[in-house]
């Protein structure tokens, strides 16, 4: 049904979305916790920065990333010193792009969930003698579970649909940086509407099922 190149594209897309989501949850948790609790004067600035990918065209992000990753760019300078190569046209480069591109989709639900817990449960746990780590894993994390489900699925689904950033920094290498949305685009451009339909339908179905899962699971969670 799917040809080998399209299978590759599907696999890379799923791998990219998985890796990016894990990185995003790891980075997003402390960031969202801080944003939910801080009284720092920088809070608004950081909030605005996190939300930027929501409003910027992906080509703007892609363009700046292309410059940043280049041998003379800041990121390129660092990676060259460390490993000798630059990250444009590589899977690692795509992960960096996706993490930035999907950041608000992960941070916002987490921030929301942390904010909704309020200070009370943590204070109660503290008076019962729970340590800092204990309080976090025993109280905050379970209470924030709907937020985590939403964040993970939104981050994953949003990365699935990524196009502009990958187009700018990916280089369309089959088996390495050619993701599903790019493969669809190529099929449409070359008038291979059959193949395009197949991949586009697959992406549509996958995205719908993922979102359905979020809404179903979170609703059940709220009722119990």
């Amino acid at each position: 049904m799917l040809n080998a190149a399209d299978m590759d594209a599907l696999w890379i897309t799923l791998r990219l979305a998985t890796v990016s989501t894990m990185v995003l949850l790891a980075l997003g948790t402390p960031l969202a916790w801080w944003l939910a609790h801080t009284r720092s004067p920088f809070k608004n600035t950081i909030n605005a920065l996190v939300a930027l990918p929501l409003v910027l065209p992906p080509t703007v992000l892609g363009f700046y990333l292309l410059l940043a990753l280049s041998p003379s760019g800041p990121v390129g300078q660092i990676t060259q010193t460390l490993g000798g190569t630059t990250l444009a046209f590589s899977f690692a480069g795509l992960v960096i792009g996706s993490v930035i591109y999907s950041l608000p989709f992960v941070v916002h639900p987490l921030q929301d969930a942390f904010g909704r817990i309020g200070p009370r449960p943590m204070e109660v746990a503290a008076t019962l003698g729970a340590g800092k780590v204990d309080r976090w894993f025993g109280v905050a994390l379970p209470l924030a579970r709907p937020g985590y489900i939403t964040a993970a699925v939104f981050g994953f689904a949003h990365t699935l649909g990524e196009f502009g950033v990958v187009l700018m920094i990916g280089g369309n290498i089959p088996g390495e940086t050619q993701v599903l949305s790019i493969a669809i685009y190529d099929h449409v451009e070359t008038l291979q509407y059959g193949e395009a339909h197949l991949l586009a339908g697959l992406l549509l179905l996958l995205s719908f099922v993922l979102l359905l899962i979020v809404y179903t699971v979170n609703r059940r969670f709220r009722i119990t």
Partner: peptide, 17 residues
């Protein structure tokens, strides 16, 4: 590496990537 069109290909080279 492949650009979607010739303008993007130029970008890849001009930026040094």
């Amino acid at each position: 590496v492949m650009g979607e069109n010739i303008a993007q290909t130029f970008q890849f080279v001009a930026s040094g990537n």
